[in-house]
Design a protein around this nucleic acid. Structure first.
Length: 441
RNA sequence: CGGGGAGUAGCGCAGUCUGGUAGCGUACCUGCUUUGGGAGCAGGGGGUCGCGAGUUCGAAUCUCGCCUUCCCGACCA
């Protein structure tokens, strides 16, 4: 993409409403613009990151056998009256009325809707388990939206739902999701620590939150320092081996980690840690629940078992805050000059900087580099704008692409370009071909 | 919802106390000179001063009401 043809409204100064790093940087880097409190438009750069995160989340769901579908954002009130949550959910649910005076709502989550889909078409235990998910916008009318996309009212979430015949089977599904989440966050380039969680209004008895450690996190968290460099990729774990997977999950959860609500300072496991207990703040980016028959029972989601009796199915739901992750990743990775994207979610892999737009030799070298990078399948953002070098450097650091290739008259005289790593700040002078090779690797 | 800020050009701000032609920086447009980490000079465009009432000869400024937004707290992917 040529920057001259890209909508990238970067800001030199921070709009006064933005307080925390991710919000400031998302506005300055031209990723989002606020429409009203807690509701944002995603500009091209932000949209690319959102879609990259979404795709990684999707791939890891698909790998454990979940089926993607898409449910509506608007739901009828009756469904929620059936589950009993229409009254329970409170003011956070945005309620609306259609032209026939029918009560509708903008979905804050989809347990009811998915249960309705399930109950209409699944009749037998032989059809279980059913593993379904979608990635869709949600609306929760937060009392106080804040921190940009981290606590918006409208947000993009992956929510998965499972239906199993019994607890053992449901627990296996839970374990699969647990592994998929560990892998998802690892691929996103962050450490998200699973912590035993309060099940809250969704209910149930088995639940973990995945928390990214960051100073600006919303809640205080406590964990064994072993978590900080623990491998969560679950290499070699066989998804079909129930016992093996269960053992891996239990082994992983062996070390202490708890959110503020669940933390118990007098617990033996905590006191034994001593200085190895890390106290910091965290951002919740995922939450998984097993809640049994909480919805299947009132809503009549039953199947016939092998013995011919009708049983309510065992359900679970599993969420990842996709739009929140954009902010959370920035909180976890930035410096005074801007964002530092992990390569897996960067809007482009490389920024190509033409230091002297308008200079024939520079333009030709950059055009050649742009074509070669593009042909090599490398996502490149080419800054061909006719502005001074300083502005290009500043913008490129701000938007945080992992690599920069800087081409200017001085380097060209010596047949070299500058290759800069955004994260380490390391700059090397190499031939363009060497840079291309390194980036292709 | 309780407490505390803020609404003046795209963004950052001054002006409000003490009423009298709406300003500065930056961004934007034109020209010239520049060009390796946010250039210089000259010229130029852009404002219902959040909205509505009121007081006054006259309101960004004073009074009343409303709206929006940000921060702290209780709640949450």
């Amino acid at each position: 993409m040529r920057l001259s043809q890209f909508f990238l409204p970067t800001l030199k100064e921070t709009p006064s409403e933005a307080q925390i790093a991710s919000h400031r940087l998302m506005l300055r880097a031209g990723m989002v613009r606020q429409l009203t409190a807690g509701i944002y438009s995603w500009l091209p750069l932000g949209h690319r990151v959102l879609k990259k995160i979404e795709q990684i989340v999707r791939e890891e769901q698909d790998k454990i056998g979940f089926n993607e579908l898409l449910m509506p954002t608007i739901q009828p009130a009756e469904l929620w009256q059936e589950s009993g949550r229409y009254d329970d959910y409170g003011l956070e649910m945005l309620r609306i009325t259609d032209r026939h005076d029918r009560k509708m709502l903008f979905g804050p989550t989809n347990e009811e809707a998915i249960t309705d889909i399930f109950r209409k078409d699944v009749r037998s235990y032989k059809q279980l388990p059913q593993l379904l998910y979608h990635i869709q916008w949600k609306f929760r009318d937060e009392i106080r939206p804040r921190f940009g996309v981290m606590r918006g009212r409208e947000f993009y979430m992956k929510d998965a739902y499972s239906f199993d015949i019994d607890y053992e089977s449901a627990r296996h599904t839970y374990n699969k999701i647990f592994l998929a989440y560990c892998r998802t966050f690892t691929r996103l380039g962050v450490k998200a620590i699973p912590m035993v969680a309060d099940t809250g209004p969704i209910g149930g008895d088995l639940s973990h939150e995945f928390i990214i450690l960051a100073d600006t996190g919303e809640s205080e968290v406590f964990c064994d320092k072993k978590w900080l460099d623990k491998d969560l990729t679950g290499k070699g774990v066989d998804l079909n081996d129930r016992t093996g997977l269960e053992n891996w999950v239990q082994g992983t959860l062996e070390d202490y980690a708890a959110t503020e609500e669940m933390h118990d300072a007098s617990n033996e496991a905590v006191t034994a840690l001593g200085d190895d207990l890390v106290t910091t703040r965290g951002i919740e980016v995922g939450h998984i629940f097993h809640f049994g028959t909480k919805y299947s029972e009132p809503m009549g989601a039953t199947v016939l078992g092998p013995d011919g009796t009708e049983v309510p199915v065992q359900m679970g739901s599993y969420g990842i805050g996709v739009s929140r992750l954009v902010g959370a990743l920035i909180e976890a990775s930035h410096d005074e000059n801007g964002i530092i994207w992990p390569e897996s979610v960067a809007p482009y892999k490389v920024g190509l900087i033409n230091l002297r737009t308008g200079d024939d030799e520079c333009d030709a070298a950059c055009e050649d580099a742009y074509a070669k990078l593009t042909n090599a399948g490398i996502e490149v953002l080419y800054d061909d704008r006719d502005i001074r070098a300083g502005g290009k450097f500043a913008d490129m650091d701000l938007i945080g692409l992992p690599w920069q290739i800087v081409i200017g008259p001085k380097g060209l005289k010596n047949g070299v370009v500058e290759l800069k790593n955004r994260k380490s700040g390391e700059k090397t002078e190499v031939t363009f071909e060497a840079a291309l090779n390194q980036l292709s690797a």
